[in-house]
Design a protein around this nucleic acid. Sequence first.
DNA 1: GTAGGGTTAG
Length: 554
Amino acid sequence: MLLLSSTLATSLSYALAIFNQVPNPTIFLFNTLISSSLTAKYRHTHVAFSLYSRILTHTSLKPNNYTYPSLFKACGCHPWLQHGLALHTHVLKFLEPTSYDNFVQASLLNFYSKCGKVGVCRYLFDQISKPDLGSWNSILSAYAQNAGSLNGVSSNNVDDINLSLEVLFLFSDMQRSLIRPNEVTLVALISACADLGALSQGSWAYAYVLKNKMKLNRFVGTALIHMYANCGCLDLAYKVFDEMPERDTFCYNAMIRGYAIHGRGQEAIGLFEKMGNEGLVPDDVTIIVTMCACSHVGLVDEGCNYFESMADYGLEPKLEHYGCLIDLLGRAGQVKEAEERVRTMPMKPNAILWRSLLGAARVHGNLEIGEVALKHLIELEPETSGNYVLLSNMYASLNRWDDVRRMRKLMKDRQINKMPGSSIVEVDGAMHEFLIGDKTHPHTREIYLKVDEMSRKVQEYGHKPRTGEVLFDIEEEEREDALSYHSERLAIAFALIASASSLPIRIIKNLRVCGDCHASTKLISKIYEREIVVRDRNRFHHFKDGTCSCSDYW
DNA sequence: GTAGGGTTAG
């Protein structure tokens, strides 16, 4: 046994050879070997599963509570839904109820989380009679990770907001249960705040880290950088980055992304260089965020160079890298080159990529390519209303009203689920959500009076509403009204009424923006002498004194 | 003596 544990540290195959000579291996020995074959160093899943089947076929052996956690962990890494489901049935069949402990439950929960089954996770969590720190961390991470993961869908998803909010609620439940959080807990909490754009709660979490003398390790640090960058506080993000005792590729990626979403391309490139000087090697995410930074400020050649440099780092371009490349070329107006790249790329383009091309075609007025992109997009996502609206607005900008009507009819015929635009504004630490034409807020009357005042003032400044825009949920005859009462303007009006502070108005989530908003918000920032920060998908627009730092696409 | 929970991109 002693020989086996010492050899495990150096060679798994040698350890296996010794193990095979043991005449009657105990379940303890099997468990040790299974977990050893699944460390970060080895990850020999086939070895682990063949050992597990040997336990099952052995007449005198039975798996116990130490057997399952590492196996579930392995299933979660890939993730192997079918294997995990089979294991779950084994747990129910072979384990004594007393062996079904917090470790088994947490690993099972974590496996379902990796497969995106948050509902199952919640069910499992509610079954745990006395959740310990590990159980709480598992459920918090399950919600936080599934809110953050895109799975090919837009990150500006209403369900994501609910999942992230649930992390905040669960955290307060955890505190009531008197279990003390650790760094892992805080990472989940901070990630949820990042997703929500919840600056006050996120800052509170950072204060909690400091007050409780927790470590600013690379996980906590990276989550904080991400949170501050997502809340529009790039300087605070950099402060955390600067103060971290150890920096790895992950935290560099988070900081470069921060610069990217704020349109600070040069700083992002500077950090890429600094990373190399510190002896850190870029990974495929580094390339994505750096290319993204280039595309936001029109550094086309630099962005293309990063794409080409991947081979130097031993990296193979993935679909996401092609996505960045198309975005880079498309935003810069090289729509034909972008389309050429889409046609010649080695893998099948996904919806994100076609949408990027469609967006570029719309901005740069290339109707032909726009129509081609839309055709593919509708094949891939026939029920996403935003795709139809993108093209429809393109027709509107070219005064092709017959086509606009045709698109609207197509949406109606296909019974496309309309997703209303929504905006969430943070006022004094609380979040308020508004939908287009929303009349549910308790201060609706005052808000609408303020919006009318705003509309009058922007029109006095010469702003003309873009009546051709297709708006969700709104019939043609109501469209002009809808433009005045779109969610962004309602949110700004509420912030102007509710907070006299001179701090910027923070719109922390903006779902489905119409093109009219941008121009009117610029004027509002000037007229009301208030800075307005709008987080639109994964991008920030800083409106100040009639200008906006991010002008592409609109 | 064996086991679970964490960061980044689109």
